[in-house]
Amino acid sequence: MDQHEHSQEHGEGTHIVSYARYIMIWIGLVMLTGTTVALSGMDLGRWIILTALTIASIKTTLVLSIFMHLKFEDKMYRYFVLIAGSTFLIFISLTFFDYAFR
């Protein structure tokens, strides 16, 4: 019984992702890289930084959720990643309350 519960507890961690799925994600990542390079060649003006960061964020989400197994882990990890990410966003946005209004 004890052992059974134990293995269940780690059941989420032992989720096996198929090679095909990983490769699909990789193809997606490479295509997104191509997109961001292509877009940078166009004259997007001030939107260039926004599109570049959006694409980078999508790529990061893919890496986090599949490569780093966040999708298959306990929900707690997702909250934690969210906490860490928003901490950084808070730091940078509060800093800009100074710089954007100089």
């Binding site: 096996i16 992702v17 990983y22 990789w26 890289t33």
Partner: peptide, 15 residues
């Protein structure tokens, strides 16, 4: 591309 591919291979190694 090199780094993305290296991420792929290390992810596959877990499987």
């Amino acid at each position: 591309i090199i780094l993305l591919t290296s991420s792929l291979t290390v992810a596959m190694s877990i499987t």
